[in-house]
Amino acid sequence: MRVDRLIALTLIVICLVAALGNWLTGSSSLQKSERGKSAVDVALIDIYGSISDSASPFGSSGGASANALLDAIGAARKDKVKAILLRINSPGGTAAAAQSVYHELMRTREETDIKIVASLGDLAASGGYYIASAAHHIVANPATLTGSIGVIVQTQNVALLLDKLGIQSGSIQSGRFKDILSPFRSSTEDDRKIVQGIVSDSYEQFLGDIVKGRGISLTELRPLADGRIYTGAQAKAVKLVDSLGNYRDALQKTAELIRVKGEPTLRNYSARSLSGSLLGRLFPFLNSAQTSFSAQFFGQSMSQVSLSDAALGELDNFAAQYRNKVPMALME
């Protein structure tokens, strides 16, 4: 190959590799370099949609990835921000995913002076509230739906349906509980005992963490934590949230906590997915599943929700319990 062509090819490859690096590393390093000139006061972290333990480092397309949230918290700590503002609009998610985010926030509280404020949007139920409880201060709109403190493992038995269709199912397993919660047979008493143990243990961990995060006693919390949902105003009355207001109020509260006069400088640390990004805002149908979930709680909007959306949401919930063919404890 001629030398000039070799140089041209090298140049093109360098440009492509550099641009790929720009995409993969995002703008975090650039922001870090710029920090010297303008330090960021508040790290904004969005927690939108169902919380799960997604492996993707680029964010999840259908909800909040626990790994992406941990990365965002880590980046905020590295940048030595004064506060983290969590913007939560989530129906919950898997127990472990919500718990991992909660613990990372609590570690941040314990090891640094970073103040954490949670702003609850339409919905911050169950796992969404679990994460919020790690905040120093929780702000909710009066009509926000929150609470739903509890753990659920749902079971389905489709054996009768399969019988009608003439389909027989079976399994070859190494132990008697390997097909626990299989949708192809009824649960036995022993199955139920095991699953109840898992649910109860997760629930106690959940309660213990809320007690630790919110600074209330277990005896105060337990009657409130029977799975019921609260409006923001009701939650304020029972001290599950600290004040009522919208996102702007939460930002103001954050400024107050870190003693910044006027508007604090803010940077969004969330890994943005397509549906949560600008395109998602321009084309709201990308967020239809999330919208339909909230709309079911608001009578006036119910007529706008198509049946297929609602059905899809149910199917999604069902599928979520059997990710990787393993029944999962959900905080939803």
């Binding site: 093109i12 440009c15 492509l16 641009a19 790929l20 720009n22 995409w23 993969l24 590393t25 995002g26 703008s27 975090s28 993707s56 680029f58 964010g59 397309s61 969330s270 890994a271 943005r272 997915s273 397509l274 990004s277 600008l278 395109l279």
Partner: peptide, 24 residues
Amino acid sequence: SFSLVILALNAAGQLRWGLMGLVG
């Protein structure tokens, strides 16, 4: 087209968009 792809990669990095965002 290559120049435009380079710009798209830079923009996706700046916006911290994932794979779907980059493709879009």
